[in-house]
């Protein structure tokens, strides 16, 4: 409804809004956020959160850049970046599952570590990517659609399929709703936790690859600050911060909504602070709605076990 309302208002306000080219602008602008938001959806549904996604984007992008500068083949650079992402997911999972550290705290810690390592990759400096075939992955269009959008669509489709049509998806919902009930039902809560963190690392790294190919440069601070925007998009899309509830469709709408808000304010020539205000109001409204629907932030999900560690393991 919000998207439709904004669309109607913007069509009246700006003649440039309701144009195919502008929608492609929106799609390109949200593509990277979308990839990570997609994988953050099962993460939040499972009752966890991964705040290291942006740092993973940075370190994986730097990995790809560093490998490309060494004139290694593009597939090697991409695989290297994805492996780094998987390692990030692995480390997060170990900390959360084995050491029973709340995922919020664990991933804040690993985010700092990853960001620091990203800076060490090239002495803190960004890397201009010399491989044209790599840059071509993120720049330009195919069939008139910006290439990053294709990757985002595929990621949404894969994760959406898993969540909707597979046993794993059902287990993720079950674990997020009630780990204890899921355990009694024979679901391995640790396995689900391992899975969502590995997926988060992998797809965040993919987003880092797309980011660096789109920019033509790798930055140690790549993606910095984007984690909150990503979580905002997921929550606005109806995923409960408390776990157990949400959908990929909702996240797509959340991502698009935030993208359209930014795009609309740009088209109107309004300065950035108004965008921040709009995003903030929307997020607060979404969470307030969540609260009023009977779920409390202190009850389950991410905030569960802040004092005593998680219960999943």
């Amino acid at each position: 409804m919000a998207i439709v309302a904004i669309g109607i208002v913007m069509t009246m306000v700006s003649p440039f809004f309701f144009q195919a080219g502008n929608f492609l602008n929106v799609a390109r602008a949200v593509a990277i956020t979308g990839i990570v938001a997609a994988v953050s959806t099962p993460m939040l549904i499972s009752g966890n959160v991964d705040l290291s996604v942006a740092a993973t984007m940075g370190i994986s992008g730097m990995t790809a850049g560093a490998l490309l500068v060494q004139e290694l083949p593009v597939p090697v650079a991409i695989i290297g970046a994805l492996i780094v992402g998987l390692l990030m997911g692995l480390v997060n999972a170990v900390i959360v599952v084995k050491f029973r550290v709340n995922s919020l705290i664990a991933t804040i810690g690993t985010a700092f570590i990853a960001r620091g390592v990203a800076f060490l990759v090239n002495g803190g400096r960004s890397i201009f990517i010399p491989a044209e075939s790599y840059v071509a992955l993120g720049q330009g269009s195919a069939l008139g659609i910006p290439k990053p959008v294709f990757y985002t669509v595929v990621v949404f489709a894969v994760i959406g399929f898993v969540m909707r049509y597979t046993k794993v998806g059902a287990h993720i919902y079950a674990v997020g709703s009630s780990p204890e009930a899921a355990r009694r039902a024979g679901i391995s809560v640790p396995k689900i936790t391992w899975g969502v963190f590995l997926a988060s690392g992998f797809f965040s790294a993919l987003a880092g690859v797309v980011l660096t190919s789109q920019a033509g440069s790798a930055f140690p601070y790549g993606g910095q600050g984007r984690e909150l925007e990503i979580i905002a998009a997921v929550i606005v899309g109806g995923t409960a911060l408390t776990g157990g509830r949400g959908s990929i469709t909702g996240t797509i709408l959340g991502v698009v909504l935030l993208g359209i808000i930014a795009n609309s304010l740009n088209l109107m020539g309004l300065p950035a602070p108004y965008q921040d205000i709009s995003r903030g109001l929307l997020l607060v409204a979404a969470v307030a709605t969540d609260q009023l629907s009977g779920r409390t932030l202190g009850g389950r999900g991410v905030f569960r076990g802040l004092r005593a560690g998680t219960e999943e393991a």
């Binding site: 440039f16 144009q19 080219g21 502008n22 602008n25 390109r28 602008a29 930014a262 795009n263 740009n266 088209l267």
Partner: peptide, 8 residues
């Protein structure tokens, strides 16, 4: 993105 929107 901001420049792209302006160009649009």
């Amino acid at each position: 993105a901001n420049v792209a929107d302006w160009l649009t």
